Simulated assay, not measured.
Amino acid sequence: MHQALRLIAGVMILVSLALTYFVHPNWVFFSVFIALNLIQSAFTKWCPMITILKKAGLKE
């Protein structure tokens, strides 16, 4: 599960950076959102994506 979480976060960051470069600079805020979510999950030990992955049936 944690490998899937890291993969999803990494892909989302790369997509955000590509959108920032090729589409519009404001897409950088998507990267900021992802970073803030990762930071809050470090403190709260709760990540919304983990909840989604569990509901999707991914085993820990």
Rank of each mutant, 00 (worst) to 15 (best):
L5Y: 06
F30R: 04
N26D: 15
F30N: 04
A4Q: 11
S41C: 15
M49F: 09
V32H: 03
K45G: 06
I34S: 03
F29K: 08
V32C: 00
A42Y: 12
F30H: 05
L14G: 04
K55L: 12
I13D: 09
A9T: 10
L38R: 07
P48M: 02
S31W: 04
L38K: 04
L17W: 03
C47T: 00
A35I: 15
W46C: 08
N26C: 09
T51I: 04
H2D: 14
C47R: 02
V32Q: 07
H24D: 12
F43C: 10
A9P: 00
A35Q: 09
T20C: 11
S31C: 12
I13P: 03
W27A: 12
N37V: 12
C47L: 01
L7E: 09
A56R: 08
G10D: 11
L5S: 05
V15M: 10
E60L: 11
I50R: 02
K54L: 08
L19G: 06
V23K: 08
T51W: 01
M49T: 01
K45P: 01
M49I: 11
M1V: 15
M12A: 15
I39M: 10
E60S: 12
N26P: 00
Q3P: 12
F30T: 14
L7V: 10
I52D: 00
V23F: 03
L5M: 11
L36V: 07
M1K: 07
L36A: 13
W46I: 11
G57A: 03
L53E: 00
K54S: 02
P25H: 03
I13K: 04
K59H: 07
G57D: 05
I39L: 15
W27K: 04
F43Q: 06
S16I: 07
L7C: 06
L17N: 04
F33V: 15
S31I: 09
T51S: 09
K55N: 12
M12L: 14
T44R: 06
I39Q: 04
F33S: 11
H24V: 07
K55R: 14
H2Q: 14
I13N: 02
R6V: 00
K55Y: 14
A9Y: 02
L17G: 01
K54W: 10
G10R: 04
S31N: 00
T44N: 09
V23S: 13
N26S: 13
Q3A: 14
W27S: 10
F43L: 05
L38Q: 10
H24M: 05
F33T: 15
I34F: 06
I50A: 02
V15T: 09
L53H: 06
F33I: 15
P48H: 02
K55W: 15
I13A: 08
M12Y: 12
L58G: 03
K45Y: 02
I50N: 05
I39E: 05
L5W: 01
P25I: 10
W46H: 13
N26V: 09
F29V: 07
I39H: 00
Y21T: 13
V28T: 11
I13F: 13
L7T: 11
K45F: 07
R6C: 11
A4K: 08
A4N: 10
M1N: 02
A35M: 15
G57F: 02
K55P: 05
L53R: 01
A18H: 07
E60K: 09
